[in-house]
Nucleic acid binder design. Structure first.
Lengths: 248, 248
DNA sequence: AGCTGTGAACGCATTCACAGCC
DNA sequence: GGCTGTGAATGCGTTCACAGCT
């Protein structure tokens, strides 16, 4: 049983206990945090293309945002550009990676090795982006012993040992919705404090545990809503048989 | 290129309860639109559990939001509740489904039948949530002829015919990043106007085309950022490598 | 001159708190 | 009494526009 990871006691009020030696925490807005990985990806692409310097305008285009927003975002990290010139690609890339915390790899466990779990386990982009899959877990005995992406699938009951052994802070849930909350609870008990949830259900977690969700159906439904509006906004006149044809 | 704008699948005409004098366009805020599918899911779960009526507080809990936000969101759709009582689960569920546009199924194509494409194709939640996969496309000849989730994988060059035949408005890109923009362009040319992009790259699309992205690495990096901050008062994962601290 | 960094203005989203109705 | 629906207040995020540096 691992009780190794402890968070700072007390809530997170706006009054921050300021230890001497610890520099003031910059307080980066959540919306900016969500874009930093996009900037990181764009900078990596620029670096791969041999670009050594870029303006906020160029980087913004590569990241799909406007330059004012980009500069504002970067201003929360510090002054890493040069006025009249722009940004050094490699330098800025490192600064953002450091801010996000992906200058070293984070160990990650994936729970639920079905179709999606397989796909996630085989996703090669992990390693280069700051993560390392250290264990694949599944409750079904027939999936255990199987080898996926070079890792043997473990029984879910090994979760405590594996999380403790590899100091895992981040878990990915790729189980069916019905199992997700129980899996989540076990992960949290084992010491995981950040969860990426692919199961289409709301997870309840204790204070201090972060959950992010990825839900394919929700994304499609948002698209469908807008699509429906486009259809209303520009209806084509005189359509008698707009039935969708069935095949397959 | 096909310049025809298509209507919602099934072709049933819009039928809002339409009081005289009410503007035809309700204008639902984007943040609300993004939550409607979550409410829909929660209502379906409640209905499956046999609940026929619920308060805003109950539904909000099931959806993982607070009740004030829920009521505000629902107020954009209309007055579907009863003061002093709450909401009829089935009635509200239908109203939200209608607003989103998933009372009939939307035909969808998936491009890129690698690990992720397989997982998406096999995801069973599609049909019940308003979508129907009508085609799987891949450029690699060795993947074609393969049968996935009951559909034969087609060559990407069939995209125009398939999109036209099935009146496809929504496409899913599950290709490597390098191929994504070209695939996107072809989809748009074929007539697709909404794209769900799983490739880790920014897509450029013409006006009128919607893109939503799902990026696993970005989600993990956002978690890593917060995890790193928690770690200020606790051991760092990856056991005591150099602390990542601000050095002014 | 050129481009970054940033206060200020603006607009959108959330929360509050209570009026309105059952 | 209880719960919804909603203006008002608050907070957050984006955009503007320009000061400040190279």
């Amino acid at each position: 049983m691992s009780a190794t990871r402890r968070r700072a006691p007390g809530g997170r009020d706006e009054s921050r206990p300021h230890e001497p030696g610890t520099p003031a925490t910059p307080v980066i807005p959540e919306a900016t945090v969500a874009r930093l990985p996009v900037y990181l990806r764009a900078l990596t692409a620029l670096a791969d293309a041999g670009t050594t310097t870029c303006s906020s305008e160029e980087l913004a285009t590569a990241a799909g945002v406007n330059s004012a927003k980009l500069r504002k975002d970067l201003s929360y990290l510090g002054s890493y550009g040069t006025r009249g010139v722009g940004y050094d690609v490699e330098y800025l890339r490192y600064q953002i990676a450091r801010e996000i915390g992906v200058t070293q790899d984070w160990p990650v466990v994936i729970v639920g090795i079905g179709n999606l779990g397989h796909a996630l386990a085989n996703f090669s982009g992990f390693r280069s982006r700051g993560f390392r899959i250290v264990a694949l877990l599944d409750a079904a005995p027939e999936r255990q012993q199987e080898e996926v992406a070079g890792l043997r699938v473990r029984g879910f009951d090994e979760v405590d040992a594996l999380v403790a052994e590899h100091q895992v802070a981040i878990g990915v849930i790729a189980t069916p919705a019905a199992a997700a909350q129980a899996v989540c609870d076990r992960l949290v008990t084992a010491g995981v404090t950040s969860i990426l949830n692919f199961a289409p259900t709301v997870l309840a977690v204790p204070e201090g545990v972060d959950v992010r969700k990825v839900d394919l159906s929700i994304e499609l439904q948002i698209l469908a809503y807008h699509e429906q509006r486009k259809a209303h906004a520009a209806p084509i006149p005189g359509e008698g048989l707009d039935r969708v044809e069935e095949s397959a």
